[in-house]
């Protein structure tokens, strides 16, 4: 009985206006958490983590490149999940959340590509190679840009939400391709330093820096998405 009352209480936040208020209360917490995490993250990345025996100090690009790449994939999966909920249940907030996630996801994808190019030049001798990992990540950027362009191109927001949901769901197949590309094909890109099967193959301080920076980017992304979804709710509900 109590659990059903609690569930009903939480369910009202699936409606845009109550969620607008909830998001407003959550944003400062996530923004402060992101700020508090990024400072020790940068300190570990630049000053505490040891110099790599092969790559020297340039490997420290990993501390922004890897979290950005992880966020680009995670945000796409979350965006596709919200888009699917909107499509199946016709839930209004789900489509708004999917629309709010897309710009931050596109930004992290672009950052992963740019920082990857800046890491590739001194280590591989090339800014870009048509490698399976790099190409599938570039396709992810095009999927995000396609999602945003399609939404902007259709005037009727409900039709735009449905069309974008189909695009997001079709594109989600690209995420496992990105993740497993280094195992499925022979690629120039190095394999995963962290994996569920083979464990960790790096110094503990490097791992700590990577985890802290990932958590910082995570909190940042949640704060940004909540700020953006409040504007989308304002636009649609106040109209």
């Amino acid at each position: 009985m109590n659990s059903s009352i609690a569930l009903t209480g939480w369910l009202r936040y699936a409606s845009p206006r109550p969620f607008h208020r909830l998001a407003g209360r959550m944003i400062p917490g996530f923004a402060i958490a992101a700020l508090l995490l990024v400072m020790p993250g940068v300190q570990i990345a630049l000053f505490i983590a040891p110099t790599d025996a092969v790559q020297g100090d340039v490997y420290r690009i990993m501390f922004v490149h890897v979290p950005a790449a992880w966020m680009s994939m995670l945000l796409y999966v979350v965006m596709a999940a919200y888009a699917a909920l909107g499509l199946i249940l016709n839930a209004r907030l789900s489509a708004m959340m999917a629309g709010a996630i897309a710009p931050t996801g596109a930004l992290f994808t672009a950052l992963a590509l740019v920082t990857g190019a800046l890491w590739g030049r001194p280590t591989w001798g090339a800014w870009w190679v048509w490698d399976a990992r790099l190409t599938s990540e570039l396709i992810l950027l095009f999927l995000y840009l396609g999602f945003m362009s399609l939404h902007g191109a259709i005037d009727d927001t409900r039709r735009a939400d449905r069309a974008c949901a189909v695009l997001a769901l079709a594109g989600v197949v690209n995420v496992p391709v990105i993740y497993f590309s280094v195992q499925w094909w022979y690629t120039l890109h190095q394999g995963a330093s962290l994996s569920f099967g083979s464990g960790v193959s790096m110094d503990s301080s490097m791992l700590a820096g990577l985890v802290v920076m990932t958590l910082a980017f995570w909190c940042y992304a949640i704060a940004m998405v909540l700020v953006r979804v409040r504007r989308i709710i304002d636009e649609r509900e106040a109209a």
Binding site: V42, L46, D57, I61
Partner: peptide
Amino acid sequence: DLWYLWVAFDIT
């Protein structure tokens, strides 16, 4: 090579 490191952090 450190130029690449600083540009990557700055851009991010």
